[in-house]
Design a binder for these strands. Structure first.
Length: 712
RNA sequence: GGCGAGGUAGCUCAGUUGGUUAGAGCGCAGGAUUCAUAACCCUGAGGUGAUGGGUUCAAUUCCCAUCCUCGCUACCA
């Protein structure tokens, strides 16, 4: 969009069920903050909204587990996350929350409008119902055995072990987590957003209009979704935690969290407007508003497909761009909350910012490294060594050093004041540097507008590098040796020194402006050293060589960045590895965890012996095994049961290679009805036990016995 | 298996609407220097551009196949 009148920038709403890690920071919040700081410096009308996403079933479930309430959880994490962002210099105009009444009203109004316009579909369906708790069960309130990996505590929407997304119907032996009883199917009514009606619009808007200017990964994901066929998506849930469905016949129903969460951007904007005596409407309704969503790649479908359809139906503007980032790995492995392989914002703050360990300058160091390795086009890697190198050899050695040597020389050779620029003594080297400053500003501006933050940051550092090269060639400390009888540099020499330092100082002032979106604390510190007000940081000032007045006395230099020692990073790496939950530890801890789980996990309905006797279990020996074509998880086994050798297909390929299980003894259900899988008929089922880590184990006799032996 | 994104110097990553010697930063080696947080500055070494085919006067860039990584998806009684 050329020349938008105003900007609305959003960063994905963090789910308020725990602390957020630097992957989240690098993926959405930091790039959004950089972009917004740039826009504000350029005096654009911009609102930057974010806030806690506090609904969804995960939160009440977590509350039950921890013996607390959903409200207590969100009230705990909301302020911590908000403070973490502040400590790292992420400056939202508002950090709102979806539990706020204004959000509930906004989301309800949104739903009502779509519903009364006939843009939603109503469908009756059979859903699991807990008779004891007298309530329908949201997907996450149902647990059962995952049909995919066999994990016994899979949720109705997703198995946390294998990550597969599920529907409650797929669960084996579903159990209500509320009462522990087996739920019954009961008819219920829900509202759906018919995405399929909007396929033509989405194709046109995403692929045609934005196919070239959105990032390849974003367009690709969308295309994949659209080509896969869009389905109506349920907008409501049977749950009591969330935004109530504003209809008389919808008792006990709330809006599905994916529906209300993005509306949180709108309600946050409303609250901001109230707080600041502004009108929120133009930001969502005027065509000349540029809406930009910063998110991680996991959120692409919501922000590029679903929410735009909602916005369109509601008569709002559509996002101009959705610069989604890929993921950031940590020390060679993907970040994971469950395996505790992560660096939380809070951890970094505790170790580097809060301690007398650098203070806010260390916030900028993290911002620097995360931007330098931002996963803009592909997954990237956070390495502590890389963090140290980026700081020591770029921030300290190039940027910090240039500023420091400029200030030191200015105090030594120019009496602590901004020296004059003697036009008559200028040479082409001087003008080249002056040009370079203007060019840097142009390049950085373009890159920022294109959301290429890592390249933009590189250009800023490069300008500092140019400064170092310039000073090296000018060698004012050598020139200063041309002294007269009074021991001071002769006039011509002093002019050269003045020119060099004048230019270096103006360049430093430019660096402050250009680095400001990326490293706000550093920019502030530079302003302090130069005794200028924040107004100098306005973007239009960049490129100018008249930012500091001749004769103005400046403060003594302070070091902008400190070195990071080897010991600090080895400590962090050790800490990470020690905290990580290794496979072994998981297996050992499992005993405790499992006991707890089993305590919660209800025993299935009682059966009589005859029921059990119906099941014919035998010991078998795997005589051969091979991978099933076109299936990642299936192995085709030949099992010797004594009386015959059978073909059994089993979903264990992710856990065992064909070679390692050949010859193993297993327990087989031999009278299970045959079933075809991937075109192969499976005659029986191999019994497996699963530990808390999701690993499967064979159930077999202690010592090898005859194939075909009965089990009872 | 299908779809999407990737596989480029020791490391982290650019780039190429197909065209002379494929780039940057860091790291490494050598040199120069001392104003500066042993920093800066200069020079250099380092790449079968995943692999194998094809199209073309010419491919890293286009096409096909294969292998590997990440995400989504399918198979799981």
């Amino acid at each position: 969009m050329k020349d938008p009148k105003r900007y609305l920038v959003t960063a994905a709403l963090p789910y308020a069920n725990g602390l957020k890690h630097i992957g989240h920071l690098a993926g959405a919040y930091l790039p959004a903050d950089i972009y917004v700081r740039y826009l504000k410096a350029a005096k654009k009308d911009v609102v930057f909204v974010c806030g806690s996403d506090e609904h969804g079933t995960a939160i009440p479930i977590q509350a039950t587990k921890e013996g607390t309430t959903a409200k207590a959880i969100i009230d705990k994490y909301h302020p911590i996350i908000e403070q973490n962002f502040k400590d790292l210099g992420i400056a939202f105009d508002i950090y709102h929350r979806t539990s706020a009444p204004i959000h509930h009203e906004t989301a309800q109004e949104f739903f009502t409008m779509l519903n009364s316009n006939g843009d939603l579909e109503i469908k009756e369906s059979e859903q699991y119902y807990d008779e004891e708790a007298a309530t329908f069960l949201a997907d996450r309130y149902i647990k059962g055995t995952c049909p995919n990996c066999g994990y016994e505590s899979a949720y109705g929407d997703q198995c946390e072990k294998c990550g597969k997304s599920l529907s409650p119907d797929e669960l084996i032996n579903p159990v209500s987590t509320l009462s522990g009883k087996v739920p019954v199917k009961k008819s219920t009514k829900h509202w759906y957003l018919p995405l399929d009606r909007h396929e033509a619009f989405l194709r046109e808007w995403i692929l045609k209009e934005n196919g070239d200017n959105w990032r390849a990964n974003v367009v690709g994901q969308c295309k994949s979704w659209i080509d896969g066929g869009l389905q109506p998506r349920a907008v409501t849930r049977d749950l009591d935690w969330g935004v109530k469905v504003p209809l008389p016949d919808a008792e006990g129903k709330v809006l599905y969290v994916w529906f209300d969460a993005p509306i949180g951007y709108i309600s946050a904007t409303k609250q901001w407007a109230l707080d600041n005596d502004k009108d929120w409407k133009p930001y969502w309704q005027e065509k000349d508003t540029k809406l930009v969503h910063f998110i991680g790649k996991d959120n692409i479908v919501f922000h590029c497909i679903i929410f735009p359809v909602m916005l369109k139906l509601h008569g709002d503007i559509l996002p101009d761009n959705v610069p989604a980032n890929e993921f950031m790995n940590l020390e060679g492995d993907k970040m994971s909350t469950s395996r505790n392989w992560k660096l939380e914002m809070q951890d970094y703050i505790d170790d580097f910012i809060n301690k007398e360990n650098g203070g806010s300058q260390m916030a900028d160091v993290l911002r620097y490294y995360l931007t330098q390795i931002a996963p803009e086009t592909k997954d990237s890697e956070f390495m502590w060594k890389g963090f140290q190198d980026a700081n020591n050899s770029e921030l300290v050695s190039i940027f910090g050093n240039f500023v420091n040597r400029t200030f030191v020389l200015m105090h030594k050779l120019c009496g602590g004041k901004v020296p004059p620029l003697h036009a008559g003594s200028m040479d082409e080297l001087d003008t080249a540097v002056i040009d370079a400053v203007a060019q840097s500003k142009q390049k950085i501006t373009v890159l920022l507008e294109e959301y290429k933050f890592r390249d933009a940051l590189f250009e800023v550092i490069n300008l500092a590098r140019t400064g170092n090269q310039y000073m090296q060639k000018k060698e004012p400390w050598i020139v200063a040796k041309q002294t007269g009888e009074d021991g001071k540099p002769v006039a011509e020499a002093q002019q050269l020194i003045d020119n060099c330092l004048h230019i270096c100082l103006q360049l430093t002032a430019n660096l402050a402006i250009l680095i400001h979106p990326f490293l706000p604390f550093t920019a502030k510190k530079l302003c302090h050293m130069m005794k200028v007000v924040d107004k100098m940081l306005e973007w239009e000032n960049a490129g100018s060589m008249q930012l500091l007045k001749t004769g103005y006395s400046l403060r003594a230099p302070e070091l902008l960045f400190r070195k990071i020692e080897d010991a600090e990073i080895t400590y962090q790496v050790e800490k990470l590895k020690n905290a990580a939950i290794s496979r072994e530890t998981v297996t050992m801890d499992t005993n405790a965890a499992t006991t707890e789980e089993t305590a919660i996990k209800p025993v299935k309905q009682e059966i009589v012996f005859d029921d059990f006797a119906k099941i014919d279990l035998r010991v078998g020996t795997i005589v051969s095994a091979e991978k099933v074509e076109k299936a990642d998880k299936l192995l085709k086994l030949q099992v010797d049961l004594g009386f015959e050798t059978r073909t059994i297909v089993s979903g264990i390929a992710m856990h065992f290679s064909p070679e390692e299980i050949t010859g193993k003894q297993v327990t087989v259900v031999v009278n299970l009805a045959p079933r075809k899988m991937r075109g192969i008929e499976s005659n029986g089922m191999i019994l497996m036990a699963e530990d808390a880590n999701g690993k499967l184990h064979f159930i077999n006799p202690e010592t090898a016995i005859n194939a075909g032996s009965g089990v009872s």
